[in-house]
Amino acid sequence: MQFSPLLAIFNPSPFQTHSEFLEVEGPFYTFAHQPGMIAFLLILCALGSIYFVYASFFIKGEQAGLKSPLALSLLLALGLGAVAERVYQQTLRQSDRPTSAVTRGVQMRSPQAPSPRLKPLALLGLVGGSAAASRRRRSSASRQRRIR
């Protein structure tokens, strides 16, 4: 069973065959063939680390987290919906495509397909949206406290 719906959207594997992988001399990690993706991910992690240092000055212990299970459920449902839609589209696309056309370093994408480099951003957006939502709730609550 070969079912890799995200394979053609972004391809983490630098190898096309098992012999390439099993006999590798040198790096064999995800995106080893895409230095741009590695650079992007590293910048993202660096920004996250800087935010952590910044946030550590302001985060105080309080009752953590989830104010509304409904909000989390909606976020999860939206995320799952997006993945399901992508799986469906990708399955359709794969069924139209000859497998031999996929060669190393060459990925076939339909013209309508969004840039693969934006996909991790979309995932982060889900998390960021959740964080922003909870921040808004807290800000609103603290404003109400101040008003009182």
Binding site: Q2, F3, S4, L7, S13, F15, F21, T30
Partner: peptide
Amino acid sequence: VGVAAGGFPQGEGIPAINLGT
């Protein structure tokens, strides 16, 4: 793993890493 390492080959005759599995 099926997303972040999807498509990685494994041994001979063994399917590549995939989300469905």
